[in-house]
Design a protein around this nucleic acid. Sequence first.
DNA 1: TGCCAGGCCGGGT
DNA 2: ACCCGGCATGGC
Length: 214
Amino acid sequence: MKNGKKLLTIYKRLYRHFGPRGWWPGRTPFEVMVGAVLTQNAAWGNAEKAILNIKRERALSPKKIHRMPIRRLKRLIRPSGFFNEKAKKLKNLADFLLESCNGRIKSLKKENSGVLRNRLLGVNGIGPETADSILLYALEKPAFVVDAYTKRIFSRHRMIKKDAAYGEVRDFFMSSLPRRRALYNEYHALIVELGKRYCKKTKPLCNGCPLRNL
DNA sequence: TGCCAGGCCGGGT
DNA sequence: ACCCGGCATGGC
């Protein structure tokens, strides 16, 4: 079967099994961006705690993060782990937004997504996955997000190499699937759901997996 | 009680 | 162009 068709078959199966995920969990584009940084190699629940701490202080805006003493920011985001690193990363993100669009994210959405992607990658702390998450879920661009679950699941199903680079996997999905933001949005969210339940790093857990027999 | 979670960076080959 | 150690908390 052709790659695109197979990917769509898998997508439909996941969608039927789990239903719409309603991603990203976050009310504003900036909240999405902050979440994308804070969840780096951390459980989402921990990133969420950190976001709630920032919200409690009414500090969830580029300007507030920019002005906040870094010590205080570190304290607020402590539950997300790597808080020394992530505090700097949030500062860099806020600085980037302030200088590129004066904190008005709406105006960023009008820009070319390829250019935007490179500019995001230029921010220290934003790598390929975080950049694509921001493009897709905050700026509403058709960028496919590849994460550890994506590689694990699709290499176990022998559709990609186990050690494939980020860009290879991204290209595989984007060249095989129709370039639709809504599809990329739901697909990545479904992959994460599947991964959390049935594709942990060590445990096989094939029982009940909707992709058990493909 | 270790192992893992929606990675990324910097320094080294 | 890879490869690897470091970064840190909370849940199971």
